[in-house]
Write a protein that binds this DNA or RNA. Structure first.
Lengths: 415, 415
DNA sequence: AGACTTTTTTCGGGTCTCGAAAAAAATAAT
DNA sequence: ATTATTTTTTTCGAGACCCGAAAAAAGTCT
């Protein structure tokens, strides 16, 4: 269970610390790294030398033109882009995007497909995912051994081992073992993740000042998804990816949800629910097909121009989200929230109701202090999150352990 | 932020690991410890020798009569009861109990007071807490330097630094800095904790098989409290003790809660709410004084004998708790739940409604698999939790670091 | 050109863990 | 009773790692 620290773990951890410091800071000097890690200069020097030797890091040539300070100038250390690469794949409604990213985080290439996820047979869906990956590798003449990790983000629930898609609102199929399938096809280790969790990862890298230890991301689109970061870690459920905010019950026995249950937050705040209310359809009417973004934009415009059923529909969505957030705040205390996705473009229409609802919950006293960010481009965010998740995997699991006794083992093998 | 591991940390951590192994297993041998910690026998031998020398551990004499195996018999290692002691204080409605516990976890003595917490002036309340502590120390001729930690559990919200009681339902006063007050009076380091969190700690020690990585404790009494354990750690909020399950909103705009808001779970499931419903008082009637346990027992008896307003009141409580748990399960996935407190004695009356409600939430598919334990004696549980929390503090913060270079420093000082 | 400043590397010392071997302490066999 | 066997615990030497101090390096300032 709780395992002791062996001597070799120590070096591994400190190597990981150095790599992570470089990934965070961009181009820190050795002195800077020593400062942030609280390790001695000599240790940093030794570890940096090893990592540069192994090709993981390199001394960046041209950073700022010239330091204005006296003394020996600092040597900037950077991630070696050629150390390896990773692939980020995002599968969402009617869209599949795969991106190849080098070790320093730069995008090398990307490949995308469009098809109707709701109707595509299981086998064809799987083939598409495998094909887009292979295509990306081939088109870039990528040696597979250099691609060190694939992270696949999907809207839906994944298992806690991050290997299988258990259920997804964007397709009728369940229990697809994407990790095994992709690993079998490519030989590259694969992680399957929830899209909202990857959004949270991305935000953490984009703006670590604002999104650090505790925050929530909310994906507002057809469904309502949530990513939780608690104590600096993306929280996944104990058996699944968790964070099923959209299916917390807002009103027991209330509006019919896509999931078949009644009164879920999503049944008031998902785009189909907003549309249903705007159209004055009964709350128990069967949720229809997904509403196109353009139609939702039209509803929002109409809601802004006059106080009709459209505005009321957005207000109801805001109340559902607000009470839900209030309940989450009751458990965790209030924290920053990022609203992501096309629905965030109508945040002006729901913010009032959200705040009113929060004010009536346990998080109420801090209602005004809670700040919301919005970002309508969820795809980019999710993809970024996948990339960073994949890269940190490589950092921690491949480069931090390093080659076991490099020179010695090599010598023995030769002899 | 993320700090590297220095060489001396290593020993400290491995010492902590050994101490923790002994505390968990009771009387393990060195070989057993080596097995669970994955450290080598030589390391364990060295660390154990140090700790025995320092008086933290000792070789237990008479364990099982004789081993039936061949070979050198294992020497059982145990915690040295004389290594130190801690104090657990539980302040709850109309009751204050302080307990002195030796380093091995055995109760040495306890001291208790009864007074009306709701009406006692602030100063007198504080005096009572200080007095009961001093009394406990004096009556046992305890050298204060040997008492190494005080943990005070209170029903209510504490700050995230575990030093101040921010708000409590059992008294009108707010923001009492118990940690500073007690530390000032005794010179012993103090931690202030939430009662439900301490229940969770206790359950983890009582039955680690069942309550390990993920579980919830629910205190059913005047109010409804929750302790969350996620990934093996007691979860506290980011700014407060968190876990305000009782004030998650069950029905927006619903029944009046003691906290002044409407529709909280507590406004349906707290004992005053059950009583209010059983008496057929309107839902918006002001919550009165706390209902005596005897009265609640009477209501429960009546509910068992016939289907009247009493039974309906318990049913409503069950629904509120069930929907609330369903929402918690939506975020974290289902996990074992322990129902604690006098309200747990009526669990038979609410279980059906709880399960029905959960079945209608995202956790529904596992509704039948979710198991509930009940324990009506919350005081003992809370006190146990405080004691264990205090002892592990001592383990990790006092004995794991140890004396810094004992022999060398001593030699220098003498010279 | 030399003084000064700051960063980075080198070196020696100390501590820690590990594996192997030895010692210890019991039972089983002769 | 003595010897062999088994298992646990300790001892010992080797290797790895980190740290602090000193040295080297690479600039700017005078």
């Amino acid at each position: 269970m709780t395992v002791g620290i062996r001597h070799d773990d120590l070096r591994r951890r400190n190597r990981a610390m150095v790599i992570s410091a470089v990934r965070r800071s961009g181009q820190p000097s050795r002195t800077e790294i020593a400062g942030t890690t609280a390790l001695s200069h000599s240790t940093i020097s030794a570890i940096a030398a090893d990592l540069i030797n192994e090709g993981v890091l390199l001394e960046a040539k041209s950073t700022e033109p010239a330091s204005l300070k006296r003394g020996r100038p600092q040597v900037a250390i950077a991630l070696n882009p050629a150390a390896g690469s990773v692939i980020a794949i995002v599968l969402s409604l009617n869209s599949l995007i795969a991106t190849l990213i080098d070790y320093s985080g730069q995008t090398i290439a990307s490949e995308s497909r469009r098809f109707t996820t709701q109707t595509l047979p299981r086998n064809e869906l799987i083939s598409e995912v495998l094909a887009v990956t292979r295509e990306l590798l081939k088109r870039n003449g990528e040696d597979e051994s250099r691609v060190m990790r694939i992270v696949l983000a999907i809207q839906g629930i994944t298992d806690s081992k991050a290997r299988t898609l258990l259920w997804s609102p964007i397709m009728p199929h369940t229990d697809i073992g994407f990790a095994d399938l992709l690993e079998g096809a490519t030989g590259i280790p694969v992680t399957v993740a929830n899209d909202c969790n990857m959004m949270a990862v991305a935000l953490r890298w984009r703006d670590p000042r604002r999104y650090r230890d505790n925050f929530f991301t909310l994906l507002l689109s057809h469904g309502i998804g949530m990513g939780l970061v608690l104590r600096g870690e993306v929280f996944t459920g104990t058996q699944s990816s968790g964070g099923e905010f959209g299916h917390m019950i807002h009103r027991p026995g209330g509006a019919l949800c896509r999931c078949g249950r009644q009164g879920c937050i999503e049944a008031y705040a998902g785009s189909y629910a907003i549309w249903r209310n705007a159209m004055r359809l009964p709350e128990d009417s069967q949720p229809g097909a997904d509403i196109p973004d353009a139609e939702m934009t039209r509803l929002a415009e109409k809601a802004r121009t006059g106080d009709g059923p459209e505005r009321e529909a957005f207000r109801k969505a805001g109340a559902a989200i607000g009470y839900g957030l209030g309940n989450v705040f009751a458990l965790f205390d209030p924290a920053p929230v990022a609203m992501v996705g096309h629905g965030a473009s109508a945040f002006d229409l729901i913010e009032g109701a959200v705040r009113d609802a929060i004010a009536q919950t346990a998080g109420g006293q801090h209602s005004k202090a809670i700040s919301f960010d919005t970002d309508t481009d969820e795809m980019r965010l999710i993809s970024e999150g996948c990339a960073m998740r994949a890269l940190t995997f490589v950092d921690e699991q491949i480069f931090a352990p390093g080659v076991p006794v490099p020179s010695l083992a090599a010598g023995k093998n030769v002899a």
